[in-house]
Design a protein around this nucleic acid. Sequence first.
DNA 1: GACTGTGAAAAGTTTCACAGCT
DNA 2: AGCTGTGAAACTTTTCACAGTC
Lengths: 222, 222
Amino acid sequence: MPSNPDDSPPLIGGPLVAVEVPEVVVSRLPQYVRILSQLLDDGVEVTNSQHLGEKLQVTPAQIRKDLSYFGRFGKQGRGYRVRHLLTELKQILGLDSEWNVAVVGVGRLGNAILNYPGFNPDGFHLVAAFDSNPGRVGQAVGGVSVQPMGAMADTVATRNITIAIVAVPSADTQSVIDQLVHCGVRAILNYAPINAQVPEGVWVRNIDPVLALQSMTYYLTD
Amino acid sequence: MPSNPDDSPPLIGGPLVAVEVPEVVVSRLPQYVRILSQLLDDGVEVTNSQHLGEKLQVTPAQIRKDLSYFGRFGKQGRGYRVRHLLTELKQILGLDSEWNVAVVGVGRLGNAILNYPGFNPDGFHLVAAFDSNPGRVGQAVGGVSVQPMGAMADTVATRNITIAIVAVPSADTQSVIDQLVHCGVRAILNYAPINAQVPEGVWVRNIDPVLALQSMTYYLTD
DNA sequence: GACTGTGAAAAGTTTCACAGCT
DNA sequence: AGCTGTGAAACTTTTCACAGTC
């Protein structure tokens, strides 16, 4: 029996190409969204890859290439209609939906996060907070009432929470993330200085100011 | 007069190769430092690229390649002596020195940063704070007395500050960074959601939790 | 036998350059 | 004329695979 010379499955009426979008491209889209939102606020109706590139400090070619993974949003000779491109990109990123977010750990950092006004305008709603310290349970922080860890499974399910922000001590972080994943959370923003392990299909981003500082000192030692 | 066929300067007794270390490699070193510090704390004396790779979730080959840009720190058949490799990497990154850091902007976020205990153990000392709001000047936050913006030039010079953490509103960020650069600051950790422009030789890293969340929602829209 | 260090190959990413549409 | 969208080229980064050392 002759084997298939290429390793792709036979395509019968399916898409001719199923190009996987590189992760680095996806990671740049939110920046495009941010700039486009600003342009819209400033009343700019049309832009182009040159202009966007200047704002973002990337080459125009990169912007065109990035966008080309998702469709043809521009008009040759004209550029991009700001409102249209913004709508499309938000849809691609899922930013046309609202996302319910849980905060785990309501220490100093968790407090600051719950009181930070920058998440809601972007469609992220901090709707629940959990803490293992009974002394903090019941407190209202940033308009949210702190719940015990035991309430997590129930609250995550009923409030339709898919994203969590974890601001607990490093030693507790992996176990908290395990619990969250078990409850169905699929994206985690982790503030502890550790690399947590998660199963396939769960996403983690780390916020790590010390690492950021340490990656600059190399260039300061002249 | 014959021109030099290659464009490198004539090497007379200099290094045979002056390989530029890729920035991505430098950005990984702090993570190696962190893991090695942990291993040292745990009493582990020897490790190897396989073991480090598991902890960091990267391939052993990448670790060996990364390290090879800076020297030969291991022993074939044995691996790496934890204490030795840690010392070397800290030195390469400039983490054997202490760094004086200024915080600009003492709102809610600046407050949290000044009170965050995680910088000092890594050799970053928050020694000055500035705010444009006269109502905040003179307050002591996290053991540091808040100074007016006008004191920046003087304090940066006398306290030998090369790094700044900027936590001011987006609209003020570029101008604050311009001032810092003018005062001689060469590395900036920026918490505002904008891409600041800086001259050659100045480094910026952004802390942007919203961008991090937005780069995950793409994968949640099933 | 076990591991590093490293050229070479493979994979991934960016930039170029231009056909083609408005 | 002015710009996009895109294959192809250039460049960067990762991974392989193995000679060499302990």
